[in-house]
Structures are given as C-alpha cells and as structure tokens.
Amino acid sequence: SLSFAAGIVASLVLLGLVSGLLGRIYGQIPGLIPTVVAVLALLMGLNLLGLLKLPLPAGPDPEIWRRRVPAPLAPIAAGLAFGLAATPCTTPVLAVLLAWMAQNGKPLVGMLLLTSFGAGQVVPLLLAGTAAASLPGLLSLRRLGQWVPPISGVVLVTTGALTLVANWR
C-alpha cells in the first residue's frame, strides 16, 4: 500500500513541477493564462455538477506498467500510472490545480501543492490497504463522499466566475 501511494504522490509531484516550469515559459502572456484557468475551472466545475458532460482522459493502463516493471517496483509503477490517470472525480480539480500552477510559474510551489493533494488522495487508500478488516466501517463513509464532487463543482464554478469577472476590468 505504501509503495503504491508513494507512486501516486510522485506522479503528482512531477506534474506540479512540470506545470510550474511551463508557467515560467507561458508567463510571458499574462492576461491569457488567468482567463484560460478561469474557463477551465468553470468547465470542470460544471462537469462535477453534472451540468456539462466532458469526456475525461483515462490515462495510462496500470496493468501494462505492471507487466513491464520488475515485481518489486510494480506497486510504485502502478501508483505512478494511477496518479497520472487520476480518477474521474479528481481530474477536474487536478486540471485546475495544474493550470493555476502554470499560471503561477513557481515549480517548487507546484510540487508542494501537488504533494499535499497527493497525500490527501492516498490517505484513504493507505487506510483501506492497511485496515482491510475494518472495510465495512470505511464503506459507511461513502455517504459523506457523495457530497465531495458537488461541493468541489460549486467551488470551481464560483472561483472560475470570480476570476473571469476580475479579469474583464
């Protein structure tokens, strides 16, 4: 479980670094990036709310990685693939985070933020992996989890709309 979780966090840290570095390149067009980030936040928020259906990428196939990587490294490789693919629930939030990091243009901040995002993403996996006997108790938390996408959608739509309004001045 820990190796798989480490792979997920590592993939997100790398995405944060790349976004921050790209932000330095694209930061030469200051008005465009905030508008793109705001529109992306609106689209992803509407997708989470179910008002706009967007086909999100599935990402790399973890099974292919597992076959091509030595057995001791397979959990890390599968975690890397899982982290890159993300889940449909986290893709909208991850896309907005990556866009914001590109806008910010600070690779170390991007790495730190996505390390935190990744840690939050893997804690439930670690709990489930190490406490499989208490799985019925963990499943009772699913009722709370159903509210995460709509709340995230409202936050993304609000943030995107406010950013667009602020940039129209």
Rank of each mutant, 00 (worst) to 15 (best):
V13Q: 02
A58G: 14
A133T: 15
I29L: 00
C89A: 03
G110F: 05
G129D: 12
C89T: 12
L156G: 12
S19Y: 00
R142D: 05
A102P: 03
F82C: 12
R142L: 10
A41N: 13
L48T: 14
A58R: 14
L12W: 08
R142V: 10
K53V: 15
K53G: 06
A131M: 12
A132P: 10
A102E: 04
L52H: 06
P75E: 11
L32D: 01
M101F: 04
L135K: 07
L32N: 02
A86Q: 07
L51P: 01
V165G: 03
P60I: 12
D61M: 07
Q28N: 00
G16I: 04
A99S: 11
L144K: 03
V39I: 14
L73Y: 00
A6M: 14
V155T: 15
A10R: 03
V123A: 11
G153I: 15
G137E: 02
W65H: 04
A78G: 09
A119W: 00
L49C: 03
L14S: 08
K53F: 00
F117W: 08
E63H: 09
M44A: 13
L108W: 04
G79C: 02
L125E: 10
G7F: 11
V165S: 08
Q28C: 00
G110T: 08
A133I: 10
N167Y: 03
L12K: 14
L49Y: 05
V39Y: 08
R66N: 05
L32I: 15
G23S: 06
P124W: 00
I8M: 13
G79N: 08
L97P: 03
N47E: 13
L125T: 13
A86D: 12
L126S: 07
P62Y: 04
G118S: 13
G137S: 08
A38N: 10
I29S: 00
T158D: 07
N47P: 06
F82I: 08
S19D: 02
T159G: 15
W168N: 14
L141F: 01
I64A: 09
G137M: 05
I64N: 01
L22T: 07
P88Y: 02
A81H: 02
P72K: 00
S140Y: 01
Y26S: 09
G7A: 11
T130I: 07
L2I: 14
L49S: 02
L22N: 05
A5Q: 09
L113P: 02
L108E: 11
G110L: 08
V122A: 08
G23H: 01
M111D: 09
P88F: 00
W147R: 02
L112D: 03
A161E: 04
G145D: 08
L108F: 07
G16L: 04
V123M: 07
L139Q: 10
